[in-house]
Design a protein around this nucleic acid. Structure first.
Lengths: 141, 141
DNA sequence: ATTTTTGTATTATATCACTAATACACTGGT
DNA sequence: ACCAGTGTATTAGTGATATAATACAAAAAT
């Protein structure tokens, strides 16, 4: 807690800044997953980069190592990272991580859920397409 | 329980057939919500129709009345049904249930969640639009 | 008014999700 | 061989969620 003298400088060897919000209602392990996903999505983490170690991040975030491990584990299941026991956890190549059919299945599942949920509010698929297109134009994140 | 002599005929005064799957991992009250939402979406239930009574359905489904009440209550919060104490629960007019700005906000929120989730799997908004369009063509539910 | 039919509130219980304590196991450098 | 670093497994505790038991309250029919 006394390295905070040099504010705004690179945080030691930590490859990514992760912050937990205890009051968000979102479980820690999920917050970690989301932040890593985002970091990968916007290029802050590239294939091959090592993630913070389970123990190191656990100390940083004042959280049990298992909580970090759980997040990393889920990310590995999704193919976003690759873990080597005794060595570390690394961002994997997204392209080879998931087969095309896997991607297709996942997308299909996501879309079904989305459509069903939206339908419950009276939205048609047409509505969704239109809104998504507008969303796309605006270039929002 | 002895009206089941006439099989295949309209089920008493029950306006809709609801089935619970105990092994689905989806809570009963949520299964009920989903099935009513779908019935409304595809026209089996129209504005003004009365839903099964809390008690009646509870007996039918072998479930506590509170479980039915909870489902109906959530549906009322979403504006899909309207409840009168001592009288019953009825499908409400979707149009007047939500204002346009409400609908817009809800849709926006749904889309954001969907896009963010899909992005975590590496899908672009363009991917989503294309898949949704295909989905639409096929006329799937 | 009374009874019956309807939804509602209160309280308790079981199950599950999340996190932590603690101990284990693999890998690489020395 | 050892040791320091890494991820992992087992077990337990806490809190939230889902459901039920039971009692209450409003509306309509008689």
């Amino acid at each position: 807690m006394n390295e905070t003298d040099e504010v705004g400088v690179a945080k030691d060897k930590r490859s990514i800044e992760i912050v937990l919000d205890p009051g968000s209602g979102i479980p820690y392990y999920r917050q970690i997953i989301l932040q890593i996903e985002m970091a990968v999505a916007d290029g802050r983490l590239k294939p091959g980069s090592q993630l913070p170690t389970v123990r190191g991040l656990a100390v940083d975030l004042q959280v049990n190592p298992n909580t970090i491990a759980r997040a990393y584990n889920e990310l590995e299941i999704r193919g976003l990272v690759s873990t080597q026991h005794g060595t570390g956890t690394f961002i994997s190549d997204k392209e080879i991580a998931l087969s095309d059919t896997d991607r297709e299945q996942i997308l299909s599942q996501l879309v079904r859920g989305f459509v069903s949920q939206a339908a419950s509010y009276g939205f048609t698929v047409q509505d969704l397409i239109e809104f998504l297109s507008a969303y796309h134009e605006e270039g929002e994140v």
